[in-house]
Amino acid sequence: MTAPIPDQASNSGPMAALSLRGLAKRFGGKIAVDGISLEVPAGSFFGIVGPNGAGKTTTLSMATGLLRPDFGTAVVHGVDVWQHPLQAKRLMGILPDGVRLFDRLTGEQLITYAGLLRGMDRAVVAARVGELLAAMDLTEDAGTLVVDYSAGMTKKIALASALIHAPRLLVLDEPFEAVDPVSATNIRSILDRYVASGGTVIVSSHVMDLVQRMCDHVAVVARGRLLAAGTVDQVRAGASLEELFVQLVGGHSHTEGLEWLRTF
């Protein structure tokens, strides 16, 4: 298999922002991801939904270069993530779920750090840090250590760190967890504008409503496999995403029984 060279790739017309081919990963005896292939069109707002433990985080980690897949490839705008990790990571902004931050830095320092690590110019970083803090409504807490932030603030500062280098593709794992409604609306409008100007966003979530309202494309993942993918309207085919999801995943059998719950 030959990986396309980045420069040629970026000239060759519209293509997938992220293309996964047969990604698979197993931890010990448990197969976490069982061969997922997925095309995320450039300029789409792409939702990945699935029940807890479906393999969303594992898939996204493998797609973003944080976890080496056992099988399969991940290609970002024509750059193979595992052949040319440094070029691929320049194109991506990543918000991983369940990892710590360098939380003994202040919020401002953390975003600056993320920018400087990517080799950005100090003046550019300083200007963008100010704007990002304002957009995330964190200006008042910019000098507080991240370790003293609430869960939602931590999520927002991590998101800001992922945005600082103006990536072409944003991969956000559970970006709205613990974020208050006002901030969530702000973040959504930032992401909407980003997509409108040609960027691609991938979010994972288990909140169907949110995905249905926010995304134009969706993929349903369960037990490490891809069950459906396409535009939101294609996939839900008239039903609500939540109904379809329960139908696909097949978890709706347990509501029988529990009669005693009504006997209090």
Partner: peptide, 15 residues
């Protein structure tokens, strides 16, 4: 000592 905060170094592709 970094623990999983090291993911930031990995995500930013620092050499």
């Amino acid at each position: 000592y970094d623990n999983t905060a090291f993911a930031l170094h990995l995500a930013t592709g620092v050499r």
